[in-house]
Design a binder for these strands. Structure first.
Lengths: 199, 199
DNA sequence: TCCATATGAGACATCAATGTCTCATATGGA
DNA sequence: TCCATATGAGACATTGATGTCTCATATGGA
């Protein structure tokens, strides 16, 4: 891994912990002089743009690795369900790795990032529409709402992990379960094994 | 309404639109000189602390107006369900009014705000626990997850409204419906009237 | 009219973050 | 060893936000 990438990794870690961290903070966290940081990254703008692009790369990889395109092409309920079940665990990891990018609003000031983000969103909306058509998810709600709801639950997952309220190994199931089935009590005599360890 | 409150309102509007707005921006948006803003508010810290306190006031009002305490005391499924159905429409409005406070992380740097927030969170967790005990919501998920999930869906609602993806009149139902029942298709022959106007 | 108060405009100093630069040093290969 | 390159430390200037101050003006009541 190049020095530049190591610096960007350190910057990501630092900004996840404190989105307002200064370049001096980042350089210190990277164990590097401030001048050295500037030698590899032109400035804060470039650094943030780079990390934003990385987060979109990751999102795209997640879509690809989940077989989103194939599932949409297939159109069957099984394929679409499998895609969702493959995608959300990855998205939860992404949301934690790129936590600061999830809620910080400076990414959406860069035109190219906005465009890419819209592109990836459009792909995901396509997935939701296919899932509606296949009868996997409700047709009485707007497909774009699923996008926002999924995103919101990723924020919830990130925050729950940060607060230590849920176990890392449970959180992906928690998100998908909540999104798909909601939190209403399903059975009257609940004897199933707890998922997140009800406390 | 006092001048100070009018200024705080303008600050809230401005910060909702752009969380990085400077005091000069806020003063301009309020139609007031920068000096006048400083005459009423000591500085940015005080302004933000004040708005944070307001958002917590609103949250507390929403809890009270939804009869949360009574519902917990009652403990019945009906009372608890009514409370949830009264609370979320209000929370959605709160999330829109205090949108910047929803995801911006400077509030949680003020010890007193953190304490109050934890207090209100604890109340809401109590509600969720009661709802679990009453069989209203699932017992196989940690109660604190419901807190995060509800919060995440409020973020989703705010973003969906900002993006123009859902109608304002639908969004509260959308949130509660998604949280309680999830997005899985419930019936095979869907002839119900669309809620958000599936597009 | 006269006066007290609030305001707008703007000057001014301060401060933190940023970006650039220099120089001594360290590292690693020829 | 000798040299090229990368680095660390730090000086320096710049910039934007912030906070304070003054003064002329406006407003509204006595």
């Amino acid at each position: 891994m190049s020095t530049r990438e190591q610096l960007l990794d350190a910057a990501l870690r630092t900004l996840n912990a404190d989105p307002t961290a200064s370049l001096a903070d980042i350089a210190e966290a990277a164990g590097v002089g401030r001048a050295t940081l500037h030698r590899h990254v032109a400035g804060r703008d470039e650094l943030v743009r780079e990390l934003g692009a990385r987060s979109l790369d990751r999102w795209e990889q997640t879509q690809d690795a989940s077989g989103m395109a194939d599932a949409i092409a297939d159109g069957g309920a099984g394929a679409l369900t499998d895609c969702l079940r493959a995608m959300f665990p990855r998205l939860v990891v992404d949301a934690e790795d790129y936590g600061f990018a999830l809620t910080d609003g400076f990414l959406m000031c860069e035109a190219d990032l906005v465009a890419r983000s819209a592109e990836l969103e459009a792909r995901e909306v396509e997935l939701w529409r296919s899932a509606q058509a296949a009868g996997v998810v409700r047709r009485d709600l707007p497909a774009r709402w699923f996008l926002h709801a999924g995103y919101g639950l990723l924020v919830a997952a990130r925050d729950a992990l940060r607060a230590g309220d849920v176990a890392r190994r449970d959180v992906a199931d928690l998100v998908l379960d909540t999104l798909l089935h909601g939190i209403t009590s399903t059975d009257t005599t609940d004897t199933t094994t707890p998922k997140g360890g009800a406390r």
